[in-house]
Design a binder for these strands. Structure first.
Length: 566
RNA sequence: GGGCCCGUAGCCUAGCCUGGAUAGGGCACCGGCCUUCUAAGCCGGGGGUCGGGGGUUCAAAUCCCCUCGGGUCCGCCA
């Protein structure tokens, strides 16, 4: 049982004696160290019940608590109606740093949950390269995968490949008309052709018919589970784009376990089966086409299940995909742009009608450009490749300026890109600005990596001097040391909060705070200087070692490497 | 028109779910700190109607209602 649990237990017991009622307690942290390590505001709530001032109640409770002698607690004070607890920092520092250094990369890891999660993310259409909007999806998804795994879930990631949409037919038609620029990175070549064919179609609307025919032929073949000239053309185009996308993902250190093609659900007949089963629910209305009435779920709009010409629609295929996916896992999570909110609700409702589980969905708002929203079709976007390349270039310049080897530029550049997206809470709309995306001189990831590099250099220097780290802590800790210790202790709570709420930015922000506190410690608590007492040296080295471990795990969970030197 | 999301200093952002002690950071700006483990750093300073108005509460950035501004979605696109 850790200190916090002991405090809560003692408080709950005391309050039960005091008011004769069971009241559950939540510990909070006071705004500054003078006010202690933990506090509780329960007296404000008891004031009305007991018809006494919070201040008096706090004093009474503190008196009773002191008699209990809570282990690990050095002092308890009643201040302005709050009850403040002061822990025995020395004992705690010893306990915590030893634990971290022993558990190493497993510090903070959750117990094995035996729960299978399928996490779908990125899933960008194969009609061009990933742009910075897709990047938000991909980074949130990938960080989440890492965090959930660390927390103890069994996670499989999916990339759902939309190979059957109109946009793919356009690409196939475009390739026939214009071919592909073989000198370009594959996904960029596809985009170029896609943009061209869109423009061509605007000028030649009569060709629209050919697009519809392509789609129909593709679906026909799939329904018969045939391979023919048409399916080969689609597969070629999709794979061509996907090759490029995978290369980008690889550069971003993002790996999907499975790529699921939506056409596979037409091939295996599940789409047909879904429609059939939905028919049986009696919620289908036949107008020009089949529509699903979802008013029972509070959705006024009816869901269209197929085109009038009989071809299937994205959302219907999506139901089939989810049905299959959710049958293979305990929890399904999708990362989707906020523009999918309504359709996602519809898919969920349809799944409920079919008696299936529903996915959890993480929505993120768009990243737009200062001049407006992005559009692959109009060629108005900034590609992930471009951004990463620019970031690495910038990182190289910084390295040169500082006389550090250029090899780490990739870690710094990618870190900046990933971190700048991971740190923002997903429901916040973002406007992309180059100067912000590439601003890694001070704030953001390099700041954290720098703190880590400082840890490394101290530890290396200590090794050279033959000084061991050891949790002695037989001296009065400075406030920087106390704060750093407390922050390191928070890590496991942060992991839990991040994982359970599926919120990557919580971890990202924590790491920045940790780095900030470490830098303060670094500036105020000398370690290897002659004048520093040996026990202090060893103890502080233990703190440095612990910090390094936590920073490394944390950044690792965001898919970011920590250079040993910067 | 209706649904959902966002609005916190010149700019970016945390906190909002689960209401409490002077609203945390950062950029930019001003002033200090390298004969001490890496100055991609540290310390100090100015800068805030938490979009606006009501309400609930001992207590509201946080909960409720209204309102303004921006984004996004609203049957055969994905």
């Amino acid at each position: 049982m850790d200190v916090k649990e002991k405090i809560i237990k003692a408080l709950e017991d005391t309050i039960k004696e005091y008011v004769g009622e069971e009241i559950s307690i939540k510990l909070e942290k006071p705004p500054n160290t003078e006010l202690g390590d933990y506090s509780v505001n329960i007296c404000f709530k008891l004031a009305k019940l007991l018809k006494k001032s919070p201040k008096m109640i706090a004093e009474d409770i503190v008196k009773k608590l002191k008699e209990k002698n809570i282990e690990g607690i050095k002092e308890i004070k009643a201040i302005n109606g709050y009850i403040n607890f002061y822990i025995d920092s020395n004992a705690f520092a010893k306990y915590l740093t030893e634990k971290i250094c022993e558990e190493k990369s497993n510090y903070g890891r959750g117990y094995k949950k035996s729960v299978k999660i399928i996490l779908e993310h990125t899933s960008a259409n194969p009609n061009g390269p990933l742009h910075i909007g897709h990047l938000r999806n991909a980074i949130i998804g990938d960080c989440l995968k890492r965090i959930l795994e660390f927390y103890g879930y069994d996670v499989e990631t999916h990339y759902y490949v939309n190979d059957m949409g109109r946009q793919m037919a356009l690409v196939v038609y475009g390739i026939e008309l214009f071919g592909l620029d073989k000198n370009k990175k594959k996904d960029h070549a596809i985009a170029e052709t896609y943009i061209k064919v869109n423009k061509y179609l605007e000028e030649n609307p009569e060709d629209e018919e050919k697009i519809l025919e392509l789609m129909r032929k593709y679906e026909d073949a799939l329904e018969k589970n045939e391979d023919n000239e048409i399916t080969k053309k689609f597969e070629f185009a999709v794979n061509y784009a996907l090759d490029g996308i995978k290369e980008t993902l690889n550069n971003l250190k993002i790996k999907h376990d499975t790529f699921v093609w939506e056409s596979s659900y037409v091939r295996n007949g599940l789409v047909k089966e879904v429609i059939k089963k939905l028919m049986e629910t009696g919620k289908i209305i036949k107008e020009e086409t089949y529509m699903l009435d979802l008013s029972d779920f509070g959705i006024e709009k009816k869901m269209v299940l197929a085109r009038a010409n009989g071809t299937s629609l994205y959302s219907t295929r999506d139901i089939a995909y989810h049905l299959d996916k959710l049958s293979k896992c305990d929890i399904g999570i999708d990362v989707l742009g906020a523009d999918h909110k309504l359709t996602a609700e519809m898919v969920k409702a349809a799944l409920k009608l079919l008696g299936s589980k529903v996915p959890e969905i993480i929505f993120y708002e768009f990243i737009s450009l200062p001049e407006g929203s992005m559009s692959t079709r109009r060629g108005r976007f900034i590609s992930a490749d471009e951004l990463l390349e620019e970031a690495i270039k910038r990182a190289k310049e910084e390295c040169n300026k500082r006389g550090v080897e250029e090899e780490i530029a990739y870690d710094i550049g990618l870190g900046a890109v990933r971190y700048n997206i991971a740190r923002i809470s997903p429901e916040k709309p973002m406007i992309f600005k180059w100067e912000e995306a590439l601003d890694f001189e001070k704030v953001g990831c390099p700041f954290i990596q720098y703190a880590h590099a400082r840890c490394c250099s101290i530890l290396k220097e200590a090794e050279n001097k033959g000084i061991e780290n050891e949790a002695i802590f037989n001296y009065e800790l400075t406030k920087e040391e106390k704060e750093l210790i407390k922050k390191l202790d928070e890590f496991k709570d942060i992991i839990r909060e991040s994982a359970e709420n599926r919120k990557v930015h919580i971890l990202a922000n924590y790491l920045l705070e940790l780095a900030k506190i470490f830098n303060r410690f670094y500036a105020n608590c000398p370690i290897l200087l002659e004048k520093v007492n040996d026990d202090v040296k060893k103890s502080r080295l233990k703190i440095v070692k612990s910090t390094k471990i936590v920073l490394e795990i944390g950044l690792g969970l965001l898919g970011i490497n920590c250079p040993g030197r910067m």
